[in-house]
């Protein structure tokens, strides 16, 4: 046992170096102010106050949440029927379809987004619509796979039992298949909504230069403006929102299972 534990040391070092340390640094940056490039460790909450007092920033936050939410809703609306369709195919075809779905995930996200930019250039669409198309395209496979897994492991006898008790196909779907696939939808949401809130490449490339999301904001403050303190503060706010929403979805998940 002990020797096995020792094998995890490099991993622990890795975590400490590249996850814990940066987190602490972000926390440190966010709660201090800079002066001429030299960090003076004077505690302040100014960075947070600045974010929440400026309507521009709040609007960016709101837009990010809105886009992530709409992306997620579209992923569910498109993904659920797709997952249902795949789950009803013969087993071998299912595996093939899942393979087809995961295939685009092997291509670099940046590349795919550039491709979309090329395609969408020919259409006269609002930049927000273009962002949605790009985002839904990118995140849809995660949603489909999660929901498909939930539907595929559903006991077929439950459906037969439902028919037996007088429910037709549609009612069986509403009363049995759908409620029992909720855990799949929830984990699909976790996999789509959270990355969508913080994504910045897709909005930047497809939304045109003036289309700012929270991810872009962070990027700008870190790389362009060089204001690491404020950038860290925004990152921290994002992180808190993500943790809060993860907690909420977990809770929702549990309550649907326990509803019994």
């Amino acid at each position: 046992m002990k020797s096995f534990f020792r094998m995890s040391y490099p991993y622990l070092v890795w975590i400490a170096l590249f996850i814990v340390a940066p987190m602490i640094m972000i926390l440190l940056y966010a709660t201090t102010r800079s002066s001429n490039g030299v960090i003076t460790f004077s505690f302040t909450l100014d960075n947070f106050a600045r974010f929440f007092s400026d309507p521009t920033f709040l609007k960016v936050l709101w837009t990010s949440l809105r886009i992530a939410l709409i992306t997620t809703v579209f992923c569910i609306l498109i993904g659920y029927p797709a997952a249902l369709f795949i789950a009803n195919l013969p087993e071998k075809r299912q595996t093939f379809m899942i393979l087809l779905l995961t295939l685009p995930m092997w291509i670099n996200m940046l590349l795919k987004t550039y491709a979309w930019r090329g395609i969408l250039m020919n259409f006269d669409l609002e930049s927000e619509v273009k962002v949605f198309i790009g985002m839904v395209y990118d995140f849809l496979p995660y949603m489909i796979i999660q929901i498909h897994t939930a539907i595929a492991k559903l006991d077929r006898n439950l459906l037969i039992a439902s028919y037996d008790l007088g429910a037709n196909r549609w009612k069986t779907f509403l009363k049995v298949t759908l409620p029992l696939s909720v855990p799949g939808i929830i984990s699909g949401i976790t996999l789509v909504f959270l990355p969508a809130v913080s994504s910045f490449v897709i909005p930047k490339l497809l939304g045109g230069g003036n289309y700012v999301l929270i991810g872009n904001l962070i990027e700008t403050y870190f790389l362009v403006a060089g204001d690491w303190n404020f950038g860290s503060a925004i990152s921290l706010i994002m992180a808190l929102i993500i943790i809060a929403s993860m907690y909420l979805t977990k809770k929702l998940d549990r309550s649907t299972v326990e509803e019994g």
């Binding site: 006898n157 439950l158 037969i160 039992a161 037996d164 409620p179 029992l180 019994g260």
Partner: peptide, 11 residues
Amino acid sequence: TVFQRYALFPH
């Protein structure tokens, strides 16, 4: 029908 493995709805 009463099924072999009961097929009760777990939710």
